[in-house]
């Protein structure tokens, strides 16, 4: 039996946490939610996710900067990290490159969310 793959979502907005969780669970993956930019390294190392979604607009520490901080962790250099945000797509595209994310997903684009998750994790 294969181990169920896990997606970790970091977002301070309950609505977006729950919608992403429901949709990703619908694909057959496990979802862990974390609702602030703090203590994320700890959560990531403990959860050992197969993919990470990070919201950008969060109190105190923007998700894009958080992304590059996580990227500096030796254990996380190859973890697929996506910015998950309502910001303008052009800005997201630039931020993803600048902060070493693997890509971005626009909130509200459910087909993109499913496609990116399946691209990284395959079909469960």
């Amino acid at each position: 039996m294969t181990v169920q793959k896990t997606v970790l979502i970091i977002d301070d907005d309950e609505s977006h946490l729950l919608t992403a969780k429901g949709i990703i669970e619908g694909l057959g993956f496990r979802v862990v939610m974390h609702n602030s930019p703090f203590r994320t390294t700890e959560t990531v190392l403990k959860t050992k996710p197969d993919m990470l979604l990070i919201d950008v607009n969060m109190p105190a520490l923007p998700g894009d900067q958080l992304c590059s901080l996580l990227r500096d962790e030796p254990e996380l250099t190859s973890l697929p990290i996506y910015l998950y945000s309502s910001n303008d797509e052009d800005i997201l595209r630039e931020s993803a490159v600048k902060y070493q994310a693997d890509g971005y997903i626009c909130k509200g684009s459910i087909s993109a969310l499913r496609a990116k998750v399946q691209f990284e994790l395959g079909f469960s």
């Binding site: 977006h16 429901g22 309502s86 626009c106 509200g108």
Partner: peptide
């Protein structure tokens, strides 16, 4: 951002 955020949530919940 302020316009898109609730729209994204509405679409997400409708889908769920």
């Amino acid at each position: 951002h302020e316009l898109r955020s609730p729209i994204g949530a509405i679409i997400g919940f409708s889908e769920l």
